[in-house]
Design a protein around this nucleic acid. Structure first.
Lengths: 357, 357
DNA sequence: TTTCATAATTAGTACGTACAACTATGTTGT
DNA sequence: ACAACATAGTTGTACGTACTAATTATGAAA
């Protein structure tokens, strides 16, 4: 037979599960329970200790024992999980620094992990965060242009009442999710218009096919071309993916795209600085010089952009600020506030990779 | 004042940490403890309950209370805390990436925080990690050349059986701590010898005064000068700190040091690339050119070193590897193995900042 | 109505006692 | 030599009492 304190704890567990007690309300004092169950106060305390270690109730000296039947328990330190595609490369250090700068002022700890843009890793990470729960998550979507196989896990986060927020890319399948993103469609337009303003008319583009950013930048790109009455040729568009980004310029369609440039194209819109750098190498290899033969514009304004030769003209967004906004938004969500999504604009940082015609 | 059961628990934790009790052996019965501490058996039980929930002891009814002095049970997800001075600047992204690459293959989560080289922040972080415990910690020491005010917290980690490991710098006050560091004394010697090999004899140095790395590099620096029969002049040494690193070259002793260089000094050993870059700016300002007027060698071989003009000759250590070694060592410590410290060597990456005389 | 002091209420700490359940060990009987 | 039993020692459960510390409610005073 179970000991009495076990029996009392079980009875209380059942009551709590059945919803006998309201959420934040105090419904059971030790004195009352002592009478109700006909046991000593010590035994009641022993039972409640079990519930407390399960996180079902919270005891507050002088006040009462509260059923924490619902959302969050906010015990001192707030645990925030951050899932990005990469941690320490490219523009991510800046974003992470922004996030950290906000979290460090609050009483927060940041658990950082990387997906390397693989949904399989995203799945593993989400499962870990579900197993040892956090108070909130900041997530950079993985391959957001493709149907995401981990939607069920995100819905589990919803059920567990763990707030989460997307940065850079999010999943359209998940309705009403909050996100902090750049206005990539507008960015695509701005890139084309910046080139057109310098007299370029034959404009090609390289885009990433598995990210929503790639699709949107392409969308803005082609919309702007149409708006300016410039031709949109399929053969002037080159697509790459996470998996072939290191090699696509040297093989298959990428190689064909490159060899077609001379004489057909004045300017190129690049998905981001990382690819722009690879492209510049490939162009040099092919005997084309930037910006004399081809002008170049890209996205992100990473540290590389100001360093390479020629220096890259690149669209910029405030990366630290980006992280700070995301972090403070998430903290508000954790404390129960509703938050709406933010969309941030791009600004051209003009350098040497665009030539006037 | 702490309640008695807390005091008893703390005393027992200390004893266990100090190795008073053998591992599997039962060494403490409630009756004995009751007499030893002069408290009631209930109070003893309350204390032991704390130890048990920490996994330090195991109670077996009818048998005794056993010190489980060994590895803690690896239940599911392993939480690893990482405390560095900075997260996203300089060489830290590489180190963090190394750590992450190991942790991600195991079932680990990484909680990342930065001290910005302030012991007050180190204190806050350690308190947080004690409050919501992790399975292990990788810590970069803060101002390791100065007496550390948070030693008591580190000893608490010992008592709690939470393994921790230092990288880059550690605290000599903490005996028998494990660390993964570079051989800074040898580095200091190598820097001087590399300059001397190019014919430099009048060699000055800039070092950080609040890190042990600074002291050791200086130690190797001056030992090498003496070994080569070269003069070691105090006025050829410039010290800076975390707090004045942005400004010291423009004021006070730093300014005086700079203005003394011309005509008195052939070559400079710099604490690291970050300071070397600032120095190069200051030298240009002062009308001195590198390497024509002054040769320069520094430490860390950061990404900057290959980019700036002139490109910096810098001592290098494998930063990713550094993080990987630290992480896998910690994981072994978490599973109960004893680990010894590692010291890694430096290798000169020669570029353009050293001129032959 | 606000402010402040006080009382009442509630959980936390600490001690004590008694007995139950279990384990280890030694003793006895076969 | 082996099994059954008894016993001492250990932790677990349960109750009781008394007091402390924190919070909340109350009521008087301003």
């Amino acid at each position: 037979m179970d000991p009495k304190y076990q029996a009392v704890a079980d009875a209380l567990r059942r009551d709590i599960a059945a919803g006998v007690y309201q959420d934040g309300e105090t419904l059971l004092t030790e004195a009352e329970l002592k009478i109700r169950f006909g046991v000593s106060r010590q035994t009641v305390r022993q039972a409640i200790a079990l519930l407390e270690s399960d996180g079902l109730v919270i005891r507050r000296r002088g006040s009462g024992t509260y059923v924490s039947h619902g959302p969050r328990k906010r015990t001192g330190v707030v645990q925030v999980g951050v899932i990005t595609t990469y941690i320490t490369d490219y523009i991510f250090p800046s974003i992470v620094r922004g996030i950290e700068s906000v979290l460090s002022t609050e009483n927060c700890m940041m658990s950082l992990s990387a997906t390397y843009n693989h949904t399989s890793r995203e799945r593993v990470l989400l499962e870990r965060f579900l197993e040892s729960p956090v108070d909130g998550l900041i997530i950079e979507g993985t391959k957001t242009a493709l149907p995401n196989p981990n939607i069920a896990l995100y819905e589990k986060l919803w059920e567990r009442n763990i707030p989460f927020l997307f940065i850079n890319g999010f999943y359209p399948q998940l309705h009403h999710s909050t996100h902090v993103v750049t206005d990539d469609e507008a960015g695509g337009r701005l890139a084309v218009e910046s080139l057109a303003a310098k007299g370029h008319t034959r404009i090609a583009g390289i885009f990433k096919s598995d990210d929503m950013q790639g699709h949107l930048r392409y969308q803005g790109f082609s919309a702007a071309l149409q708006g300016l009455g410039l031709p949109v040729r399929d053969e002037n568009i080159c697509w790459f993916t996470t998996e072939n980004k290191l090699t696509f310029l040297g093989e298959g369609t990428g190689k064909a795209f490159l060899s077609r440039l001379r004489g057909h194209v004045d300017a190129l819109v690049c998905y981001n600085d990382e690819i722009a750098l690879r492209l510049m190498d490939a162009l040099k290899e092919a005997g084309l010089s930037v910006p004399e033969d081809v002008s170049l514009i890209s996205f992100d304004n990473s540290a590389y952009a100001g360093i390479c030769t020629p220096r890259l003209s690149s669209l910029s967004h405030p990366k630290d600020e980006f992280g700070r906004i995301a972090a403070s938004k998430l903290l508000k969500m954790i404390s129960g506030e509703k938050e709406t999504s933010s969309v941030m604009g791009w600004q051209l940082v003009a350098r040497d990779s665009i030539r006037s015609r």
